[in-house]
Design a binder for these strands. Structure first.
Lengths: 234, 234
DNA sequence: TAGTGTGAACCGGTTCACAGCT
DNA sequence: AGCTGTGAACCGGTTCACACTA
């Protein structure tokens, strides 16, 4: 029996893999493939077949025993589950190298995310046109959020400003924050923060490189399903 | 008894948190603080005190019961353990918005990573000066690696080129790859790959936003210590 | 007394192995 | 015959609770 969708929340580890499945399914669909087995799909996604089946079963039984999964059905189910269809407006604060790159990042728009505003604290940047948007000052933040109702705020400022900017985002009504400043942000409990620390990623690779060139054994990385730290705090 | 460092490899989840501890310790040291308790430090890092103690104990006993940890001793121990002191040359391939931002990313140089070469497949970009380096064509990759011996390669190309670039990096002798293309890379077993998918980060936030505005309950995110997927495969 | 270090319980997530369905 | 879906074992990681020590 096919269980109703989202009967119970999806495990976080599974959730982090679903978009990966979705991407491969899209490729299969484009190739004209209509059916995949868990072995095929798992191999293409770089995960264990049993794990794939377990992941998919947590959103319901959409496979056919003895056959496999229908590519388009599965796409629709996963896409619906993770909000693929939804339009997600996003506001970006801090437009240095990284922020500017994010503003034009193809991987965002391709997945239903739409940049609706760019904010920077530097008065000299005000009015500058970047990827089709004019940079606006911090004072306009509340106004922008009230107008377009972005659900997600991206912080790409230096560490020194990150907490202040985060507070402003929260005050404006944002409840989801993607933080690229390598610092711990403090937020009220209803706000979700994910921190992506690019330096940390290199650091972890460096550690592996260091131990593997030593006589000692390199550790197999158990942080799969999360190469960066997410902090969620009260 | 203080155990010898690296008697056994550090758990991956712990490893991902050490740089965070190090950053906070650096701030404390700058403030002239000489001693911290696990409660204080854990709170500043956004982790549970017991977890911090467990993490630190896995590199040896550097605390004093009834007192706490000596800030500078701990800094030295953690820094030494994760290769903070080491100089890590890095080569970046793909200099679109994201690659360009990474080339100038302050968070890299601040942690001992040094960009030694920029490579782009587009002949029109060849020779362009970016953050103090001239962009070089793909054909020069092997040469560049032979010269500066970068241990780490960063892939910031479109998905379509990522596997090809990865193969070239591996062929040139690179054993650690940080991949920003949202795709699964296939590499020989001795090569470590970490994939950071920026779109995925937003996707996960979007899911949380979606379920929390539903009557249903939002899941608490268990992918802490890994906001992105790392793929490591044979 | 205050705070570390750690045995032991706990918990989420992964993998195995096979029952059950087509 | 073949492949899904899942109970159950397993495993790494987290948290509790307290013995131990400065």
């Amino acid at each position: 029996m096919t269980q109703a969708r989202s009967q119970q929340p999806i495990p976080g580890a599974t959730l982090a893999r679903l978009p990966g499945y979705l991407r491969v399914l899209a490729e299969l669909s484009a190739d004209g493939t209509h059916t995949v087995s868990s072995d095929q799909l798992a191999h293409a996604c770089g995960v264990h077949p049993a794990q794939l089946r377990r992941d998919l079963s947590s959103l319901g039984s959409y496979g056919t025993r003895g056959v496999g999964y229908d590519v388009d059905t599965l796409r629709a189910e996963i896409g619906d589950e993770i909000g693929w269809t939804h339009d997600w407006p996003v506001v970006i604060v801090g437009l240095g190298n990284l922020g500017s790159a994010l503003a034009g990042h193809a991987g965002f728009s391709a997945r239903g995310f739409r940049v609706v505003a760019l904010i920077d604290a530097d008065p000299a940047r005000e009015g500058e046109l970047l990827h089709g948007h004019r940079i606006q000052p911090m004072e306009r933040l509340a106004e922008v959020v009230a107008l377009d109702h972005p659900a997600i705020g991206v912080i790409a400022t230096p560490v020194a400003e990150a907490q202040k900017v985060c507070d402003a985002l929260v005050a404006a009504g944002i409840t989801s924050v993607l933080n690229f400043a390598p610092t711990t942000l403090t937020v009220p409990p209803q706000v979700t923060v994910r921190t992506v620390d690019l330096g940390l990623e290199l650091q972890i690779l460096a550690y592996h490189a260091q131990v593997s060139q030593d006589p000692r054994q390199a550790v197999v990385d158990p942080t799969s399903g999360g190469a960066s730290r997410a902090s969620l705090q009260a």
